[in-house]
């Protein structure tokens, strides 16, 4: 069990990394009118066959060899379904994968989102060759972080140099505060 949804995002996004994606798009969007929290993770990695998609929601399916169980996707699915939400995986070999989890926003069993900024920051820092597009929205307020824009400005300067790392942290924090306007999830 993960204690916050942002940890599920970090975990499931590792699958995209392993799928050799060059672009990973993560969206976290709360809709207070519909009372939903939707999290999507889309990648352009190697994708899966229909058969693999079905088995990936099974805890006893994994591609790693150190253990016989893979709990990343089942944890995420369980967290969504426990709140009366939905969960789906769409994938196509050689094209990529889209994981969608919808949560009941005000459902008592919905885990807090937690430190999503730390998740995004960690993903960017430790996967310097992958581009990330992160969208965070509350109703009609939103902000987008696109590492392709950063890369264009920075050229050869690495994302994990102290100044840039600090900038990315602050960019996430300040923009999230601007979108939240007091709202917490």
């Amino acid at each position: 069990m993960m204690t916050e949804l942002s940890l599920n995002v970090l975990d499931v996004a590792q699958n995209s990394v392993r799928a050799e994606a060059t672009l990973i798009e993560i969206t976290v969007a709360a809709d207070t009118g519909k009372d939903t929290l939707t999290i999507t993770i889309r990648d352009n990695g190697c994708g899966m066959t229909e058969e693999q998609v079905q088995s990936v929601e099974d805890p006893f399916f994994t591609t790693r060899t150190t253990r016989k169980v893979g709990l990343g996707v089942p944890f995420f699915k369980m967290a969504a379904l426990a709140t009366g939400g939905e969960f789906s995986i769409q994938s196509e070999p050689q094209a990529g994968t889209l994981v969608t989890a919808v949560f009941g926003l005000s459902h008592i069993d919905r885990m807090p989102l937690g430190d999503i900024n730390s998740t995004i920051h960690t993903l960017i820092q430790y996967n310097p060759t992958i581009d990330f597009v992160y969208r965070y929205a509350v109703d009609d307020r939103e902000f987008v972080l696109d590492t392709r824009e950063f890369r264009q400005i920075l050229g050869d300067i690495p994302f994990d140099s102290p100044e840039i790392s600090a900038y990315i942290s602050e960019y996430l924090e300040e923009n999230q505060d601007g979108v939240n306007m007091g709202f917490t999830m």
Partner: peptide
Amino acid sequence: GMATCGIASGARPVLTALSNAVQ
């Protein structure tokens, strides 16, 4: 270690603390 097992038991803050301290 940052697989499901590591993340679930608290690896993310450990990783962040280490990289911050090293910097």
